[in-house]
Nucleic acid binder design. Structure first.
Length: 586
RNA sequence: GUGCUCGUAGCCCAGUGGAUAAGGCGUCAGCCUCCGAAGCUGAAGAUCGCUGGUUCGAUUCCAGUCGGGCACACCA
């Protein structure tokens, strides 16, 4: 629809130039937008205002010329199968806006489109099949996932879904930090607990992992191979403990994510980068590119010349590589695997690493635009308005699993995606659990279930979705009103019976879904979908309370069933992008 | 101290250059003999932190300033 308006304006500008009404044929990049206020029309363009300087004319004058050219040709646009005007009125307003008022006939085709496209409505190809990798969560396998990981998981997963829906070839990946000191610390923590279990007197230092899950793992290990382990040399025993524990914790992380509705295409091990020599290869490559130098017995990467505040060490003077070294190798590896674009989702506390990683991307010969970091701000966990005390050091924290168990996957994900990840988020367990208006997930899911109820009721009354639904045995297909549409759209234009303001408003919102998805994909902001779903839900509830879908008048009933089942489909599509289910019953 | 980020109604928050700043909570007043009240309608509530700049136009971009959060290792 926006494109149509744009073409109309472009066309008019052409004609105006040819007729000599406008001195220049330069067309600046105009915007077509849906104005906030209804009395400013359905679409509006700033064409006249941004053209003022090139045309050397006042904006309102340009707007008048464009409008008269459009009006001369208006009949070209006003033909469709509903025999209703598409362009009803054009106005000049304010400083030079050209406002388009569409006739209701312009909107009915969207209902048909939604029914034809179903789960594909909203899809686009703006990604042109580009390969994109979204890496998220990537928590160390040294302890269970907590609420912050949950937000990152919800954001990363939704961004991946939205990009895939927009024509990108998306891979979701989890980077496993299974190398380095924290894994050794994990091994030591388990081993010390194991020693305690066998009755040895040992100190349990502060820098070890304190959580109860360490004891549980030690207990397991004690049962299976406790005595064998205790006679081994300490270093070897710690190594075994580390492997066992990391593996076990990773399995639990996978399980928790699965229960949270997140599935990764790839689990990538940091250790594998060392094993395959890729970390050393990357360092060699950087030496060849002359972006690495030696100082004080360490190797430094010249990140400062790529915009970082200072250079960074990649190999320490004790010969060990830093975490940054494997990160360089990992990101080089990502692009070597053929991704055109790489997106990392990080906790906001890591923002200090963006510059140095950007440096690594550029030094590897990639463009900075190919790499995005999504910084997800922290989550404050509350219960009934009171902060829940959490301390990693003491090992006392609420895990993602506990949250999902308590409030459910849908409520948790929806709340995580309800705000921009740029802002901190208060997550109140009591609110998330309540089935009240405070809890937005029910507000939206309720629409879906309510419509399912209406369609079921209509079906019971024999209003027909059922008779035309041929022989389908599945309930979903039986209640689908696609069949109704195909039965009617060739005959009378029964959708014309949808004339209530609330109905037109609903269709307009439905029609804007593809644009919202596109914006959401371009900005990498899933909460646009959230906001959209809330406004669609609100419009539906308002409509529902004012008008009956099932009426005495059969064609009107069918038209309304088509409308509400369109709403149901779009709600479903939006919720699916966010990883939230759309229940038939609640 | 340096860097990043956020300041919008009593509280939470949307709005990535446009016209009269959108919702929700809370408060007040209403709506179920009727397709699901997990819903709806109405009222009150905002100098968009402050000061400048860029422009036809700034909540939005830039600079400065104040306030909150975070980060500033040869740790991961």
């Amino acid at each position: 629809m926006k494109n149509l308006i744009k073409n109309i304006v472009l066309n008019a500008a052409q004609i105006a130039f040819q007729k000599g009404l406008l001195p220049s044929d330069i067309i600046p990049d105009m915007e077509i937008e849906a104005p906030r206020h209804e009395n400013h029309g359905d679409f509006s363009t700033n064409f006249a205002m941004i053209s003022a300087s090139v045309q050397k004319m006042p904006p309102r004058k340009i707007a008048e010329i464009i409008c008269s050219c459009i009006k001369d040709n208006i009949n070209e646009y006003n033909t469709n199968q509903h025999k209703l005007d598409i362009i009803e009125k054009i106005e000049i307003a304010g400083p030079g806006f050209i406002n388009f008022f569409l006739g209701i006939g312009a909107w009915y085709p969207f209902i048909q489109k939604i029914h034809e496209q179903g789960e594909d409505f909203g899809k686009s190809d703006i990604g042109h099949g580009k390969k994109v990798q979204v890496e998220f969560v990537s928590a160390n396998p040294t302890g269970p996932l907590h609420i912050g990981h949950g937000r990152g998981a919800a954001v990363g997963d939704a961004v991946g879904n939205i990009l895939a829906f927009s024509g990108f070839d998306v891979q979701k990946e989890y980077y496993i930090n299974d190398s380095g000191r924290q894994i050794r610390t994990l091994g030591r923590s388990v081993w010390l607990r194991l020693c305690q279990l066998s009755g040895r007197e040992v100190d349990f230092p502060d820098d070890c992992y304190q959580g109860d899950y360490i004891r549980d793992i030690a207990t397991d290990l004690n049962k299976t191979m406790g005595t064998d382990l205790l006679v081994k040399p300490e270093i070897e025993a710690i190594d075994i403990c580390a492997k066992y524990a990391a593996d076990k914790i990773l399995q639990e992380i996978k399980e928790d994510l699965k229960n949270f509705g997140v599935e990764f295409d790839m689990w990538f091990s940091e250790q594998s980068l060392y094993d395959s020599g890729k970390v050393q290869d990357a360092i060699k490559e950087f030496k060849v590119r002359d972006v690495i130098y030696e100082k004080d017995g360490a190797l430094w990467f010249k990140t400062e010349s790529f915009g970082d505040e200072k250079d960074r060490v990649v190999v320490r003077n004790n010969g060990l590589t830093t975490y940054f070294a494997s990160d360089i190798a990992y990101h080089k590896e990502k692009f070597d695997r053929g991704f055109d674009r790489v997106i990392d989702v990080w906790g906001a506390d890591h923002h200090g690493y963006i510059n140095r990683l950007n440096a690594a991307i550029e030094a590897s010969g990639r463009k900075r635009e190919q790499f995005d970091v999504i910084l997800v701000q922290l989550v404050n966990l509350l219960r009934g308005g009171q902060p829940v005390a959490m301390s990693t050091r003491s090992g006392e924290f609420v895990t993602l699993k506990e949250i999902v168990d308590e409030v459910g996957k849908d409520a948790a994900r929806f709340i995580f995606l309800s705000r921009s990840y740029d802002s901190g988020l208060d997550f109140d367990l009591e609110v998330a659990k309540q089935q009240t208006a405070d809890n937005p997930v029910y507000y939206v899911q309720y629409v879906h279930a309510r419509i399912a109820g209406i369609i079921g009721k209509a079906s019971e009354q024999g209003i027909q979705l059922a008779s035309s639904a041929h022989l389908s045995s599945s309930e979903d297909e039986r209640i689908s009103s696609c069949n109704v549409l195909s039965q009617f759209d060739t005959s009378s234009s029964f959708l014309n019976l949808l004339v209530e303001p609330e109905e037109i408003k609903l269709i307009k919102i439905l029609a804007s879904f593809p644009e919202i998805v596109e914006k959401s994909a371009a900005a990498l902001h899933p909460h646009f979908i959230f906001t959209y779903l809330m406004s669609l839900a609100s419009a539906f509830h308002g409509y529902y309370n004012r008008h009956k879908v099932i009426t005495e008048h059969q064609e009107l009933t069918l038209a309304r069933l088509c409308l509400v089942s369109s709403v149901k489909k779009v709600i479903h599509n939006g919720l699916t992008l966010l990883g939230v289910s759309a229940p038939e019953r609640m």
